[in-house]
Design a protein around this nucleic acid. Structure first.
Lengths: 142, 142
DNA sequence: ATAGAACCTATAGTTACTATAGGTTCAAGG
DNA sequence: CCTTGAACCTATAGTAACTATAGGTTCTAT
């Protein structure tokens, strides 16, 4: 076994995470309160490194903090099955796809505006982009 | 000309924007301080409706508030040309494309994890998704 | 022993709003 | 004219997920 101990700075470096972020994760309950030195400095072990890696990777994949808490619950508590984790990953994949769709629409709108604006040497009050932006929004919003 | 006057509530309804958001836009300098009734209620005109539509549409297209301020400057100040607006729209389109690319990578990672997790009936400590999440992150992050 | 890096806590700032509290004004009905 | 209740007013706090700052303490290496 690896019984190496780490300071918060070493933990942060190993996980590409800032020290302040570790403090934050502790405050919101993602990271446990670790043992301390006599002087009050936090002492971490390899288990903490792994846990923080898990948190960071989950966050990178777009899971919100509350979702990461759920994922961690699956791990911290016994009697959970892989299927629960799989369901969350699939759900997250769908959420991400929706965001992609949104952004695609957005980019199309921008590109369309740009192509309508051929010259660029017109004064602003004659600009088709500005014009498009002034247009009233769809009725469904009312 | 249309000299119709609107209360803040009517303005909000016409632009699919909340009253509090109009207050906020005034506070951060996107909307001007409008004239008031004797009792202190704000009075808006059609120009305000158009301006707020412009702001909302720009925000919907992903422009940040500071960028919307720049766009409005082009309109509020004389001697600006369509090309400046076009450049901002093109830049914004690139930013959006980058976000799309990021999300695509993210979704691929999620989908890969899901396909590796065939059964779902394994206990969590044997789950390939959990496993992947525990994996250390790429060296470039260090 | 001491210097300075790393750590500690608590608080404020970031973005773009949204929500709340507690009070005032407006418009419509009686 | 008076009342009632919706709409308005200001100021402040809350949201997500951190980041940054201030002011003080501890650790580590010389």
């Amino acid at each position: 076994m690896n019984y190496e101990k780490y300071s918060i700075g070493q933990l942060a470096k190993k996980t590409a995470c800032k020290v302040e972020t570790v403090h934050y994760y502790e405050k919101v309950g993602l990271m446990p309160e670790p043992p301390r030195t006599e002087g009050g400095h936090r002492i971490y072990s390899l288990a903490h490194v792994k846990r923080l890696n898990f948190i960071r990777r989950s966050r990178d994949l777009g899971f919100r903090i509350e979702q990461v808490k759920e994922l961690l619950k699956f791990i911290d508590e016994p009697n959970h099955y892989c299927g629960e984790v799989k369901a969350m990953a699939m759900q997250q994949s769908r959420v991400v796809q929706e965001k992609i769709d949104d952004l695609q629409r957005l980019k199309s709108a921008l590109n369309e505006m740009v192509t309508h604006c051929a010259s660029g040497d017109k004064p602003v009050d004659d600009c088709p982009i500005v014009d498009a932006l002034f247009t009233e929004r769809a009725a469904e919003h009312y």
